[in-house]
Design a protein around this nucleic acid. Structure first.
Lengths: 363, 363
DNA sequence: CATCATCTTGACAGCGCTGTCATTCGCCCC
DNA sequence: GGGGCGAATGACAGCGCTGTCAAGATGATG
């Protein structure tokens, strides 16, 4: 058995107890302590009680690094976040509501399962992405990785993750329907639902501001929008779909184009709230009253959607729930040491339509 | 030298290279690799080049756990976040803009310094806080800890951190002016400035909705508010200070009280934006036009402040910058292995007054 | 040219765990 | 009553690094 004085010499000030201390206190071997802590089979009740007592008395907690190094659970979940996007947010001085909610969900689950959340910035545009990611993963050896939009589909990332056999969950996956745990909402269905809401109000001339076509969320929302029209026997007019960039400014511009055309739509469904807010501004600039002269619908239910004038009718994405579901699905995987990321389940979480002041019957 | 086949057997799929692989490839000892990587002195140029070459070829990156375990840098920064608050946010389904911006700042700095960010929920109300925190810290052994508002002052936490000699930074510290790196803004000064703005516009009858007196941010803002009045020879009227809870609802209630009094103020300065938004709503409910009949000022510059009607005049807290400053100050500390948390510098970051539509001359 | 200080490099022992394998102990059965 | 078997526990070797200490290389010095 080792010298207990070692404790004081650790340089990290008052160091915590180690497994040796617990073993000594309980009068058992370190392996037995390890067994109890890992809930291994074939442990006598007496042993368990002795160990648990010692653990409690010493306030012992296993070292993450040691566990991780010894080849077992690191109990770290890494959330991979888009660096470029983050830098943009940083520059604009704004937080990222989506990411924040996502993280909330992850944190809540991590807390329950006694796991830890590490947030990592990844530069998805770097030519060295493959290399970067591999380094990152071997450096921190997370037990599971959560891919966040809009980067849940990067081929290189999926490849590296598969090669390294790291379990992963994808929030809002778009392609590669067979890799990892996939958690998403029904974008098309939600878009259809909110378009239906406008149609139900009596609108016929409905325009859409889509997101960048590169994102399938954009495509799915547009698809849903058009499907809703078609189901009512209406033909989507291409000139009434403007592509935006998911930003306030691009929404404003798109609205200008849409409202400046020969025939003015009575409702605009923007593919996200930021753009819808831009529409609100464009409408105000033209002296159009919302919702009297123009109904506006968004997507996402960002915080500002509640405080805009009028408040936005929008789709509430259950982001935190998605994240929690991801972690929930991921953590058992870790336990099972299941390292095949194929054929895992897909979870579709329910969204909700938030009807607020920005939509009404056409005048 | 070890068996290179080991690589394939690691069970983690394609494992990354280890220091042994690099050493073998470079034809040097592992210690030399370690030396180069740590930038230790007395390393020949030739050695450095050989090692760096091998590292590059292999895409080698040191294992966090091993480094941490071996007693050196864990390169982990832990951000301690209030669990109760987080759960509330989780329930409400809203993100946390403040936290998000804070994290952004931390992430940016971590990225630069090749550190990692771990976000940890802490239940500050738990009777076992001391124990919990000690366990947490010994489990993850972060190199530095960032305390986030409103928990930058918890005595138990500061104590544990000091005992464990973990360097820490405090965002928005209120008490204990000599512990850790302290990063804050000038709350009183900012409050004074925004009150001055109202006074400059010609307002005399200015009311204040403060935050909970328990938070010194509340007290400082109130102090600044009253100081501004006094400097103009005005006497603050206690009945024109209402205490809110930093929430929308409490702002609305407080505004009701203030506006329902015998003499109606022409301007209200709320200690945060959420409450100011409540004031906006209360004013609208009473048919008061803002800013014509009532000027409203907030504090924080939350995202909704931009999209409210009218947009809020408010104080912009440079949260991300504060966080970045914290990390910036913390990381060198880690390197220097400085484990005294006393007498460290205090950083006061500049705020800015955002003048928007919610304030104007009194009618 | 021997001597000593200085620079450069390597061997080796942990850090705190987990995994493997060996050992002990009871207990059942013929 | 001996052989066999499973359950319970322990001894010990790493995991991939860093720190310590020793040794070899180099150069300065008298």
């Amino acid at each position: 058995m080792r010298d207990p004085v070692r404790l004081e010499a650790a340089g990290w000030g008052m160091a915590g107890a180690t497994i040796y201390d617990v073993a000594a206190r309980a009068g058992v071997s370190i392996k037995s302590v390890s067994r109890v802590l890992n809930g291994e089979a074939n442990v006598s009740e007496a042993l368990r009680r002795k160990v648990e007592g010692a653990v409690a008395e010493l306030g012992y907690r296993r070292s993450l690094s040691a566990r991780s190094l010894a080849g077992s659970a690191s109990s770290i979940i890494a959330a991979l976040v888009d660096a470029t996007l983050t830098i943009e947010h940083w520059r604009s001085g704004r937080g990222n509501d989506y990411l924040s909610r996502l993280e909330l969900g992850l944190l809540m689950e991590c807390r329950q399962a006694d796991h830890h959340l590490m947030v990592e910035l990844v530069d998805y545009d770097a030519p060295t992405l493959r290399q970067d990611l591999a380094s990152l993963l071997t450096a921190i050896r997370p037990q599971g990785v959560v891919l966040t939009p809009p980067n849940s589909d990067n081929d290189v990332v999926l490849e590296v993750l598969s090669e390294l056999a790291v379990p992963f969950a994808r929030i809002g996956p778009e392609t590669a329907p067979d890799l990892g745990v996939r958690i998403r909402m029904d974008d098309a269905g939600a878009a259809e639902q909110i378009t239906d809401h406008l149609l139900d109000l009596g609108h016929v001339d409905i325009a859409h501001i889509s997101g960048p076509a590169a994102y399938s969320a954009s495509r799915l929302r547009r698809t849903g929008f058009e499907a809703a029209l078609r189901r009512r026997g209406l033909t989507p007019r291409p000139e009434w779909v403007a592509e935006g960039q998911f930003t306030f400014g691009s929404g404003l511009d798109a609205a200008e184009r849409l409202l400046g055309g020969p025939r003015r739509p009575t409702a605009i469904f923007a593919a996200n709230d930021d753009m819808a807010l831009g529409v609100l501004q464009a409408a105000a600039a033209r002296g159009l009253r919302v919702p009297h002269d123009l109904s506006v619908a968004g997507f996402d239910d960002t915080p500002s959607a509640v405080f805009s004038t009028p408040p936005l009718t929008t789709i509430r994405q259950p982001v935190a729930e998605m994240a929690a579901a991801a972690a929930q699905r991921l953590i058992p995987l870790l336990k099972a040491r299941l390292d095949a990321n194929d054929g895992l389940e897909e979870v579709i979480v329910p969204h909700s339509l938030m009807i607020r002041g920005s939509t009404s019957q056409p005048a």
